[in-house]
């Protein structure tokens, strides 16, 4: 099994919390403490499979019989015949930590929560970096990674992806009836494999259902950290 390291970016965490600019010193000190606790409590795990893509009609992960709906994912995978499907989690220990702090200190709890989000992002970055290295050695290129809930790819697809990856048995991630992954700090994502380098692709807010009602955009950034 590959070993994954995670890293919390406290500035990213601050942004997730609705902060803008640089946190003041007091907040920064607390964010550093929160980041340390999260990195200690995390038990990162990843499971991945490679799937062929069928684009004849709808976009289908062939062997899995799963359809990926929406314009955005179609645009992303237009040049790919196969993709990597993966699920990454930082584990349930983080959740227990957050539950405990919820009874002690609310602002610190939300720092922990934001740091945990940053940690799972960094885990995904690590997976992506490893895959890039692996495929570039074969002269292949990867697209950006894309998750249910990004753009117009419906979040309702989550249970099917988890079940295809057998996440419950392999890495301890299950999905509730309402489509929430447990542990909550878990991500599923698709990365296209292609013969050509990806042309400019912006996840973009255009196809997002919340474009007119987004707290991030109100603060002048997107949820993925782009300054508007």
């Amino acid at each position: 099994m590959d070993n994954y390291s995670i890293h919390v970016d406290i500035h990213e965490a601050y942004r997730y919390m609705g902060g803008f600019g640089k946190p003041d010193n007091a907040l920064e000190t607390e964010l550093i403490k929160a980041a340390e606790l999260i990195e200690k409590a995390a038990t990162p795990r990843v499971i991945e499979i490679i799937c062929a893509i069928n684009k004849t009609n709808r976009l289908e992960l062939t062997e899995l019989g799963i359809y990926l709906e929406g314009k955005a994912i179609r645009a992303l995978l237009h040049d790919s015949d196969s993709c990597v499907l993966f699920c990454a989690t930082i584990g349930g220990g983080v959740e227990a930590l957050i539950r405990k702090w919820q009874l002690k200190n609310l602002s610190f709890t939300s720092m922990l929560d934001a740091c945990a989000s940053s940690a799972v992002e960094s885990l995904c970055d690590g997976v992506e970096a490893r895959l890039t290295q692996f495929y570039s050695a074969q002269g292949l290129f990867l697209t950006d990674r894309f998750s249910p809930g990004y753009g117009d790819l419906p979040i309702e697809i989550q249970p099917a992806l988890c079940s295809a990856l057998d996440t419950s048995r392999k890495i301890g991630v299950s999905v509730t009836d309402s489509g929430i992954m447990i542990p909550r700090k878990s991500v599923t994502a698709v990365i296209g494999i292609s013969k050509n380098a990806q042309k400019h692709f912006e996840i973009g807010c255009r196809d997002c259902g919340r474009i007119n009602n987004c707290n991030f955009r109100e603060n002048g950034v997107t949820c993925y950290g782009q300054i508007i």
């Binding site: 919390m17 609705g18 902060g19 946190p23 907040l27 609310l106 602002s107 939300s110 720092m111």
Partner: peptide, 14 residues
């Protein structure tokens, strides 16, 4: 100020 600061005030008030 932003949410993190607002929440710290709420904690102190608690």
């Amino acid at each position: 100020i932003f949410l993190p600061q607002l929440m710290r005030s709420a904690d102190a008030s608690c």
